[in-house]
Amino acid sequence: MSRTTLRDAFDPACPIRNVLSRISDKWSLLVLYTLSLTDGPVRFGELRRQIPDISQKMMTVTLRTLEEDGFVNRKSYPEVPPRVEYTLTDRAKTLFPHIQSLIGWAKDNMPAIIKERQTNLNNQR
């Protein structure tokens, strides 16, 4: 990475900051990953069941953000009760090789990270 690229990363208009701040929050990658596990559309309630610790409000906010950025398609049906389905966009699908790499890295390194956390906690006492 050049010094110019690094310097640009500190600029609020930088693509690194701009894009990563939207997909690296607590829920976005998990929602994207969950949507990737199915071939077809997923209803809101099913997403909530698959991610049980997310609140309805945070699921709504996360899905809206992902929709605004073109990662998720939302389709609403005029039914009672309303039915809303979500699918990944082609843009989101191009992100998945990178997400899969990150998931693999996390799985490979999690035991060492947990051990390091425990060591550091014990040293602080």
Results as ranks from 00 to 15, higher is better:
residue 1 M to S: 12
residue 1 M to L: 10
residue 2 S to Y: 01
residue 2 S to W: 03
residue 3 R to E: 15
residue 3 R to A: 08
residue 5 T to M: 10
residue 6 L to P: 02
residue 8 D to Q: 12
residue 9 A to M: 08
residue 9 A to V: 00
residue 10 F to W: 13
residue 10 F to Q: 06
residue 13 A to S: 13
residue 13 A to T: 11
residue 13 A to V: 06
residue 15 P to V: 07
residue 15 P to H: 09
residue 15 P to W: 10
residue 15 P to E: 04
residue 19 V to Q: 13
residue 19 V to K: 10
residue 19 V to A: 14
residue 20 L to S: 15
residue 22 R to A: 09
residue 24 S to L: 15
residue 25 D to E: 10
residue 25 D to F: 07
residue 27 W to Q: 04
residue 27 W to P: 05
residue 28 S to K: 02
residue 30 L to A: 09
residue 30 L to Q: 11
residue 31 V to G: 03
residue 33 Y to P: 00
residue 33 Y to A: 05
residue 33 Y to K: 02
residue 37 L to P: 00
residue 40 G to L: 00
residue 43 R to G: 14
residue 45 G to V: 08
residue 45 G to R: 13
residue 47 L to M: 10
residue 47 L to G: 08
residue 49 R to Y: 07
residue 49 R to G: 04
residue 50 Q to L: 12
residue 53 D to G: 00
residue 53 D to C: 07
residue 54 I to C: 06
residue 54 I to L: 02
residue 56 Q to S: 14
residue 56 Q to M: 08
residue 57 K to A: 13
residue 63 L to R: 11
residue 64 R to E: 10
residue 64 R to A: 06
residue 67 E to G: 04
residue 69 D to P: 03
residue 70 G to L: 13
residue 72 V to G: 08
residue 72 V to R: 09
residue 73 N to T: 14
residue 73 N to W: 14
residue 73 N to K: 12
residue 74 R to S: 09
residue 74 R to D: 01
residue 75 K to G: 00
residue 75 K to V: 11
residue 76 S to K: 09
residue 76 S to I: 06
residue 77 Y to E: 07
residue 78 P to C: 02
residue 79 E to N: 06
residue 80 V to C: 05
residue 80 V to W: 04
residue 81 P to K: 11
residue 82 P to D: 05
residue 84 V to K: 09
residue 86 Y to H: 12
residue 86 Y to C: 09
residue 86 Y to P: 07
residue 86 Y to K: 11
residue 87 T to Q: 01
residue 89 T to C: 13
residue 89 T to F: 13
residue 90 D to Q: 06
residue 91 R to D: 15
residue 93 K to R: 15
residue 95 L to K: 05
residue 97 P to M: 08
residue 98 H to V: 11
residue 98 H to M: 09
residue 98 H to L: 13
residue 99 I to Q: 01
residue 102 L to E: 03
residue 102 L to F: 09
residue 103 I to T: 12
residue 104 G to R: 02
residue 104 G to P: 00
residue 105 W to N: 02
residue 106 A to I: 05
residue 106 A to E: 05
residue 111 P to S: 11
residue 111 P to G: 09
residue 112 A to L: 12
residue 112 A to I: 03
residue 117 R to L: 15
residue 119 T to A: 00
residue 120 N to F: 02
residue 120 N to I: 03
residue 123 N to G: 04
residue 123 N to M: 09
